[in-house]
């Protein structure tokens, strides 16, 4: 089963997100991640959902999403070239000895340290899911206290040459 990144434009109003999430639960589709925010148009929100399913299921998901009156556009980015990012905040246990190494790791992943205390530091990183996963893996031995991930956001790539 392939992971699909589905980008949805929906009327930015009361209950609209609920309709999308409700559709997934009512029909037994799974959601790997979901992120929501306003789009370029204030009256429209962009929802990015990552979902796993075979082609038939994904086809149904897209058709069912299109049936929602509040949904104005649905695009399965999976078959297009697209850019995707996820943001993560990781709070890691840190002390005098481990702090330099943590800062090095943070730098390698081009992330930022946004909070620091005697016993922990919090790292902010953005990137593809794989990059975020890799960084978390590197941080695990130090003792991860908390993680907050936004889920994937994505846009279709416009540049058509080699990247």
């Amino acid at each position: 089963m392939k992971k699909h990144t589905i980008s949805i434009l929906v009327e930015n109003k009361f209950g609209a997100l609920n309709r999308i999430v409700g559709l997934f639960s009512a029909r037994g589709y799974n959601i790997d991640s979901i992120s929501v925010g306003t789009s370029e148009d204030d009256s429209v929100a962009r929802v990015t959902i990552v979902s796993k399913g075979d082609d038939d299921v994904i086809e149904q998901i897209i058709k069912q999403l299109n049936k929602l009156i509040d949904v104005t556009k649905v695009v399965d980015l999976t078959y297009d070239s697209f850019v995707e990012r996820e943001l993560v905040l990781v709070k890691v246990a840190a002390n005098r000895n481990s702090r330099p190494e943590l800062m090095q790791i943070s730098e390698i992943f081009r992330s930022k340290i946004i909070d620091i205390s005697q016993r922990s530091i919090t790292i902010e990183a953005t990137g593809s899911e794989q990059k975020v996963d890799a960084m978390i893996k590197m941080l695990e031995p130090f003792g991860i206290k908390e993680i907050a991930r936004t889920g994937r956001v994505a846009l279709k790539r416009e540049f058509e040459g080699e990247v």
Partner: peptide, 16 residues
């Protein structure tokens, strides 16, 4: 009732 009927209506409205 909007929440309750969301999955059994073609659409529903709360008039505010």
């Amino acid at each position: 009732i909007i929440g309750i009927t969301r999955s059994i209506t073609k659409h529903n409205f709360l008039v505010k």
